[in-house]
Protein backbone atom coordinates (compact mmCIF):
# COMPACT_ATOMS: atom_id res chain seq x y z
CA UNK A 1 0.00 0.00 0.00
CA UNK A 2 1.31 3.37 -0.91
CA UNK A 3 1.54 6.00 1.75
CA UNK A 4 -1.45 8.22 0.81
CA UNK A 5 -3.34 11.07 2.50
CA UNK A 6 -5.25 10.13 5.59
CA UNK A 7 -8.20 7.87 5.02
CA UNK A 8 -11.26 9.78 3.76
CA UNK A 9 -13.19 8.24 6.60
CA UNK A 10 -13.20 10.08 9.92
CA UNK A 11 -11.48 8.43 12.73
CA UNK A 12 -14.48 7.35 14.81
CA UNK A 13 -12.94 7.27 18.27
CA UNK A 14 -11.53 10.79 17.83
CA UNK A 15 -14.86 12.17 16.57
CA UNK A 16 -16.92 10.67 19.33
CA UNK A 17 -14.48 12.10 21.88
CA UNK A 18 -15.00 15.49 20.31
CA UNK A 19 -18.78 15.16 20.39
CA UNK A 20 -19.00 13.87 23.94
CA UNK A 21 -16.68 16.63 25.02
CA UNK A 22 -19.15 19.22 23.78
CA UNK A 23 -22.22 17.22 24.81
CA UNK A 24 -22.03 18.57 28.30
CA UNK A 25 -22.25 22.18 27.13
CA UNK A 26 -24.60 22.19 24.21
CA UNK A 27 -27.09 19.38 24.58
CA UNK A 28 -29.54 18.21 27.17
CA UNK A 29 -31.31 14.93 27.09
CA UNK A 30 -34.84 14.56 28.20
CA UNK A 31 -38.11 12.98 27.21
CA UNK A 32 -40.55 14.17 24.60
CA UNK A 33 -43.22 14.52 27.30
CA UNK A 34 -41.15 16.90 29.34
CA UNK A 35 -40.17 19.04 26.41
CA UNK A 36 -43.70 19.44 25.24
CA UNK A 37 -44.91 20.17 28.75
CA UNK A 38 -42.15 22.75 29.16
CA UNK A 39 -43.26 24.45 25.99
CA UNK A 40 -46.87 24.40 27.08
CA UNK A 41 -46.55 25.76 30.57
CA UNK A 42 -43.99 28.38 29.76
CA UNK A 43 -46.12 30.03 27.17
CA UNK A 44 -49.71 29.69 28.21
CA UNK A 45 -51.91 32.08 26.33
CA UNK A 46 -54.85 33.19 28.40
CA UNK A 47 -58.18 33.77 26.73
CA UNK A 48 -59.68 37.11 27.68
CA UNK A 49 -62.42 36.26 30.12
CA UNK A 50 -62.48 39.14 32.52
CA UNK A 51 -66.00 39.56 33.79
CA UNK A 52 -66.01 41.88 36.82
CA UNK A 53 -63.74 43.25 39.52
CA UNK A 54 -61.27 40.38 39.27
CA UNK A 55 -60.64 41.43 35.69
CA UNK A 56 -59.18 44.69 36.95
CA UNK A 57 -56.73 42.83 39.17
CA UNK A 58 -55.98 40.53 36.25
CA UNK A 59 -55.14 43.61 34.19
CA UNK A 60 -52.98 44.74 37.08
CA UNK A 61 -51.20 41.41 37.00
CA UNK A 62 -50.37 42.00 33.38
CA UNK A 63 -49.36 45.55 34.20
CA UNK A 64 -45.88 46.87 34.89
CA UNK A 65 -45.65 46.20 38.62
CA UNK A 66 -46.52 42.50 38.68
CA UNK A 67 -45.79 41.63 35.08
CA UNK A 68 -47.25 38.30 34.10
CA UNK A 69 -45.07 38.38 31.00
CA UNK A 70 -42.23 36.97 33.09
CA UNK A 71 -44.14 33.70 33.26
CA UNK A 72 -44.97 33.56 29.62
CA UNK A 73 -48.65 34.26 30.04
CA UNK A 74 -48.80 37.81 28.82
CA UNK A 75 -50.39 37.30 25.45
CA UNK A 76 -54.10 37.58 26.13
CA UNK A 77 -55.86 36.31 23.06
CA UNK A 78 -59.30 37.63 22.31
CA UNK A 79 -60.21 34.60 20.27
CA UNK A 80 -60.57 31.41 22.30
CA UNK A 81 -59.40 29.41 19.33
CA UNK A 82 -55.91 30.77 19.88
CA UNK A 83 -55.82 30.40 23.65
CA UNK A 84 -55.11 27.55 25.99
CA UNK A 85 -55.76 29.03 29.43
CA UNK A 86 -59.08 30.46 30.54
CA UNK A 87 -58.87 32.64 33.63
CA UNK A 88 -62.47 33.10 34.70
CA UNK A 89 -62.08 36.44 36.44
CA UNK A 90 -65.31 37.51 38.05
CA UNK A 91 -68.84 36.48 38.88
CA UNK A 92 -70.73 34.39 36.35
CA UNK A 93 -74.40 35.26 36.08
CA UNK A 94 -77.13 32.94 34.87
CA UNK A 95 -77.19 34.71 31.53
CA UNK A 96 -73.44 34.39 31.10
CA UNK A 97 -73.11 30.70 31.99
CA UNK A 98 -73.93 29.36 28.49
CA UNK A 99 -71.48 31.85 27.01
CA UNK A 100 -68.79 30.62 29.38
CA UNK A 101 -69.37 27.05 28.31
CA UNK A 102 -69.34 27.97 24.64
CA UNK A 103 -66.04 29.85 24.94
CA UNK A 104 -64.55 26.91 26.82
CA UNK A 105 -65.72 24.52 24.13
CA UNK A 106 -64.19 26.71 21.44
CA UNK A 107 -60.74 26.44 22.97
CA UNK A 108 -58.64 23.67 21.46
CA UNK A 109 -57.03 20.96 23.60
CA UNK A 110 -54.96 21.03 25.77
CA UNK A 111 -56.67 23.67 27.83
CA UNK A 112 -56.77 24.67 31.46
CA UNK A 113 -59.05 26.79 33.60
CA UNK A 114 -58.18 28.99 36.55
CA UNK A 115 -61.16 30.06 38.64
CA UNK A 116 -59.98 33.46 39.84
CA UNK A 117 -61.60 34.87 42.91
CA UNK A 118 -64.29 33.81 45.31
CA UNK A 119 -67.14 34.34 42.86
CA UNK A 120 -65.67 32.06 40.24
CA UNK A 121 -64.67 29.45 42.81
CA UNK A 122 -67.89 29.23 44.77
CA UNK A 123 -70.22 32.12 44.09
CA UNK A 124 -68.46 34.45 46.51
CA UNK A 125 -70.64 36.75 48.57
CA UNK A 126 -73.52 36.36 46.12
CA UNK A 127 -75.53 33.36 47.21
CA UNK A 128 -78.67 34.26 45.26
CA UNK A 129 -80.80 33.74 42.17
CA UNK A 130 -78.52 35.56 39.79
CA UNK A 131 -75.03 34.09 40.22
CA UNK A 132 -73.81 30.60 39.38
CA UNK A 133 -72.35 29.20 42.58
CA UNK A 134 -68.93 28.40 41.25
CA UNK A 135 -67.86 28.00 37.63
CA UNK A 136 -67.00 24.37 38.24
CA UNK A 137 -70.69 23.81 37.72
CA UNK A 138 -70.09 24.75 34.10
CA UNK A 139 -66.47 24.02 33.21
CA UNK A 140 -63.80 21.83 34.83
CA UNK A 141 -61.40 23.90 36.89
CA UNK A 142 -57.72 23.25 37.46
CA UNK A 143 -56.76 25.91 39.99
CA UNK A 144 -58.96 27.91 42.34
CA UNK A 145 -57.71 31.27 43.58
CA UNK A 146 -59.35 32.64 46.74
CA UNK A 147 -59.72 36.35 47.30
CA UNK A 148 -62.10 39.13 46.55
CA UNK A 149 -60.34 40.16 44.41
CA UNK A 150 -57.17 38.06 44.74
CA UNK A 151 -54.01 40.09 44.84
CA UNK A 152 -51.98 39.99 41.64
CA UNK A 153 -49.39 37.95 43.53
CA UNK A 154 -52.09 35.37 44.25
CA UNK A 155 -52.94 35.15 40.57
CA UNK A 156 -49.26 34.73 39.72
CA UNK A 157 -49.06 32.02 42.35
CA UNK A 158 -51.96 30.23 40.70
CA UNK A 159 -50.26 30.44 37.31
CA UNK A 160 -47.11 28.95 38.83
CA UNK A 161 -49.13 26.18 40.49
CA UNK A 162 -50.75 25.44 37.17
CA UNK A 163 -47.34 25.29 35.56
CA UNK A 164 -46.27 22.73 38.14
CA UNK A 165 -49.42 20.77 37.54
CA UNK A 166 -48.78 20.69 33.80
CA UNK A 167 -45.22 19.59 34.37
CA UNK A 168 -46.35 16.81 36.66
CA UNK A 169 -49.21 15.50 34.58
CA UNK A 170 -47.78 15.97 31.12
CA UNK A 171 -48.47 13.27 28.60
CA UNK A 172 -48.37 13.74 24.89
Amino acid sequence: MSPMAASPYVDIPALSDHISGSLGHNFVTTTVDKVIAWGRYNSMWPALFGLACCAIEMMGTGGPKFDMARFGAEVFRASPRQADLMIVAGRVSQKMAPVLRQIYDQMPEPKWVIAMGACASCGGVFNNYAIVQGVDKVVPVDVYVPGCPPRPEALLDSVIKLQRKIRATATV
Binding site: L51, G90, K95, V99, F126, N128, A130, I131
Partner: peptide, 11 residues
Protein backbone atom coordinates in the same frame (compact mmCIF):
# COMPACT_ATOMS: atom_id res chain seq x y z
CA UNK B 1 -77.01 43.74 28.99
CA UNK B 2 -77.65 41.53 31.98
CA UNK B 3 -74.60 39.30 31.61
CA UNK B 4 -73.30 40.55 34.93
CA UNK B 5 -76.60 40.87 36.78
CA UNK B 6 -75.81 40.00 40.36
CA UNK B 7 -79.05 40.69 42.15
CA UNK B 8 -77.59 43.37 44.42
CA UNK B 9 -80.89 45.05 45.09
CA UNK B 10 -82.48 41.80 46.22
CA UNK B 11 -79.49 41.03 48.41
Amino acid sequence: IGYLHTGFEKD
